[in-house]
Design a protein around this nucleic acid. Sequence first.
DNA 1: GATGAATGAGTATTCATTCAT
DNA 2: TATGAATGAATACTCATTCAT
Lengths: 232, 232, 232, 232
Amino acid sequence: MGIQERKERERERRRQQIIVAAKRVFSEKGFNRATMEDIAQEAELSPGTLYLYFKNKDELYASLSLRILQYLNIRLNHVIKEEGLDPAEQMKALREAIYDVYQFDPPILINLFHLQSSETLKNLSPDLFKDIQNLSRRSLEGITALFRNGIEGGLFGAFNPKMLAELFWSMFSGMVLWEENKRIFEENNDFLKNTLDIAFDIFLMGIRRPEKNAALSADHPAGSTVDTVPSD
Amino acid sequence: MGIQERKERERERRRQQIIVAAKRVFSEKGFNRATMEDIAQEAELSPGTLYLYFKNKDELYASLSLRILQYLNIRLNHVIKEEGLDPAEQMKALREAIYDVYQFDPPILINLFHLQSSETLKNLSPDLFKDIQNLSRRSLEGITALFRNGIEGGLFGAFNPKMLAELFWSMFSGMVLWEENKRIFEENNDFLKNTLDIAFDIFLMGIRRPEKNAALSADHPAGSTVDTVPSD
Amino acid sequence: MGIQERKERERERRRQQIIVAAKRVFSEKGFNRATMEDIAQEAELSPGTLYLYFKNKDELYASLSLRILQYLNIRLNHVIKEEGLDPAEQMKALREAIYDVYQFDPPILINLFHLQSSETLKNLSPDLFKDIQNLSRRSLEGITALFRNGIEGGLFGAFNPKMLAELFWSMFSGMVLWEENKRIFEENNDFLKNTLDIAFDIFLMGIRRPEKNAALSADHPAGSTVDTVPSD
Amino acid sequence: MGIQERKERERERRRQQIIVAAKRVFSEKGFNRATMEDIAQEAELSPGTLYLYFKNKDELYASLSLRILQYLNIRLNHVIKEEGLDPAEQMKALREAIYDVYQFDPPILINLFHLQSSETLKNLSPDLFKDIQNLSRRSLEGITALFRNGIEGGLFGAFNPKMLAELFWSMFSGMVLWEENKRIFEENNDFLKNTLDIAFDIFLMGIRRPEKNAALSADHPAGSTVDTVPSD
DNA sequence: GATGAATGAGTATTCATTCAT
DNA sequence: TATGAATGAATACTCATTCAT
């Protein structure tokens, strides 16, 4: 059993070694231009060895995302389980957690969004697909829980917490992509780092006063999302 | 001259025919799995003909984006130039324009974001790259102008209009991507159509009360974007 | 008939126009890289028109060679038919004719040798192939005749005139190719112009004294070509 | 180390296996009509494998030439370094060496001349181009050295040895091409084998008596190459 | 005759994946 | 386990040639 376990640990170490190498290569060359040969070289292994740890290139790529989703979950759980935070403080902690996830590995985070909107996802092994799906869902549930706390704690009005969570998350995705856009167009001015704070505030401001929102929203049906959609 | 013009028109019609076919195939199979052969077949042309109208696969793909950017610009210009709208009404019109752009061609819009965060962009002919860059920039300037109107019209507080425009646009991008995510994870519940309104309201709500924002933002440096960054 | 003839003349003019354009393009880009499109553009015609005058690309290419072979024949005939030349003067005239053929169109002449050692020749229409074959043969016969005159006039020893003609011609081919080599290796020092004279002299010197040749050749069977091989 | 060496040897064997197959296919079909697929099939390998040993089709083709140039060099060095040969015997040995080079691999030798007068050469990797260039140069230097010996040994008159070497080599090239011509025109009578001897004799005869050459050359400037051009 | 848009067969090259060692 | 040589399917792109106008 000790041997079994040591082997398992060793195996995990190799996987991480490969993932780290893959991360570097994918970031530098993009998914299509990065070859398994490149990654093997970066990992100081042979191409064949990669296939002992990952079924194929798509799965190796997807495993990168899994890693950041795992980190996201850990951070969200910390926020949720930390004792003695009132809803407003939780919100501040959420913002910081999101920050950290971005800083944990910016290129991988971009890969994550790229992955999600690509054909790759459809070709994963069912297990890995499930893992990604579950972790995504759990992350969203975590954020939802935080918003629900806020609502229940009287911090916000009567919005549907899941919808707020999704909106919040998609807003964040958009900012990350926008950052990437700017890098390509070479107007690199650190959009994300400069605006996440202000965006967060604007967002929280907006949802803080539901009675005014209701007024504004009165002339279109989206008002129906307020409080009437079951929160999951 | 009449002949010249007719030929030009005929040529443009063919280009559109190919673009339409390409759109279908790219949407169905994604960029990598879609072959030029597939597209030619869909367009009821031969592969060689595609190359009479588009230099290569990348450029054909990029041309899809150009099309939606053109539509976006037209719609934004309408909003800006429409007479007799007060800032609040302009904001409402902006929301509707954005709606329409999405509905004009949802899969292409997703392609646009995919394109922007991909390696493809770097390999276009300089002309096409410039076109996309310029149209993107002009679109953003259009949105910026609308926010500036809002600010000058006293509708909002003292935010930097360009930053608001970028934030708004990235939020929208994120929602589109999220919609795509959900499609892949097969929880298709029309997130975008249901939430664009509410998101818009939240966003506008938030930026409407800068004095409160300032209070919230007081403990972090992002407050510095308020009113102190030159509006262009 | 007048009309018929004028049409024929017009047709020939077009052919020449195309050949001239093709010559330029082939010389600049080589056979494989030169496209029919390129040639059409150079001739200020459309690609389709080329096919009204030449069955295909190979035949157009081969027609270039025909042109220089025709010129070679004309020059050789002049030398042969010129009255009052003794064999030594005829030899000098031959040298000058060969010079002129090279200077008539150096790149085409190189093309000619390239053509002859390539797969192209096998794929010509029988007629064109025959034409080239016949003109080549006739040229060689012309040179042979000149050498026979020399032999019969006592200028040389007892060599087989046809063999001397072939040897002479292959030597010239080799010099042309060598010139081309040097151009590619960028040691361009006009080898051909500088050495044709000296080569000619060495060659004539050598064959002038068959009794010495016989001595040198005594230990190998090639001596059998002396005077014993039928001259056709 | 033993392993390293064995691998290197194995690799070289594969290269030769491919070169041999390529030689057959190129000879049969010519450069353009021969496909990499054909060559792979002939070598009983897969197309991909060819690219593990040769960067591309051009380089594979050029490598054929390298092989014969290497053989030529070896043979020339033997002649030069053989002890106890007087200049006349060296010349005889040169003739035999040239014979052998032709017989070593007639089709490849033709390829070599074809290569040198084609566009291919310009597109090789710098290294391979350098190799070919150097070996060509060294071969010519070898022949030059032999002629210099002859001159210094009083065998010939006062010609420039390098020019003689070039002339000699181009004559040989021409004979090879002419042989190929005849094969295509289907009058295959082993021209080369029958005439190299006689050509050699004529050539040597001719250069043996420079004072007579000078007489003949008196009326054209090529006489200036006699003795006045530096021998390198 | 002349055009030139359309054709579509033809191919070099890549690279994820396998498997004998 | 690890290797890395070999595989061979897959595909973007070219260009000689055709034919409706």
